[in-house]
Design a binder for these strands. Structure first.
Lengths: 104, 104
DNA sequence: TTTTCAGATAAGTCAGTACTTATATATAAG
DNA sequence: CTTATATATAAGTACTGACTTATCTGAAAA
């Protein structure tokens, strides 16, 4: 189940913090590492997890690996919430369209 | 961190399925149990977890316990997504207002 | 080519968690 | 009062997952 994987990926505070930092701008692994109190392998493992569920994308350049958020990655999460639109008015409908148009 | 707790709560497929069933209508524990292939204690434990993070609420009536979704419970999740509105236009702003007005 | 640097992978450890069965609590029914 | 039913809690187990150190791959620098 896609939702499970995405919820799981974002349930870890470190991993979510990585996602949040990447949301601001593309960064290399060592740049990212600077902000956290965990080892470099831990960062790589978190990035692999985020990449595995489509939340981030990788761009390789020489010996550097640059990671960035893949905006489409959040779509299943938004859609899941959307399924519970019965709890609030239909405003959220707009989200879907917005996300679709964002497909670049 | 509130977000972590909510993401964690919804990351478990059984627990999320319970939430989804309760989203349709209020149900007692034994009614819920009928739909799942886990023991009654497991259901109670999941409900306690969902209740602990404010995703569901309990109403006690005699020897029965009726659970329902607390719509406000999803607010932190929506707000978190909202923080990444930089990735898509400002439509999501509306959500906050909607959720606020939903405070019953 | 040898060394250094960026990053990924391997393997092991430890804590957390989803489950189980057994038991407790409390209300309702006989 | 005794028994049955609804739910919660206790305690134990097995698995998962986030971390570590050590090692591997590959590109740049010396």
């Amino acid at each position: 189940m896609v939702e499970t994987e995405i919820f799981r990926a974002l349930a870890d505070p470190t991993r979510r913090a990585i996602f949040e930092r990447l949301a601001r701008r593309e960064m290399s692994v060592s740049e990212l590492k600077a902000g956290f109190d965990v080892s470099q392998p831990a960062i790589s493992q978190h990035l692999a997890a985020l990449r595995g569920v489509g939340l981030v994308a990788e761009r390789r350049e020489g010996k550097f690996a640059y990671y960035r958020v893949d905006p489409k990655g959040l779509t299943p999460l938004v859609n899941w919430i959307d399924r519970y639109r019965t709890f609030w008015p239909a405003r959220i409908e707009k989200l879907k369209d917005v996300l679709k148009g964002m497909d670049k």
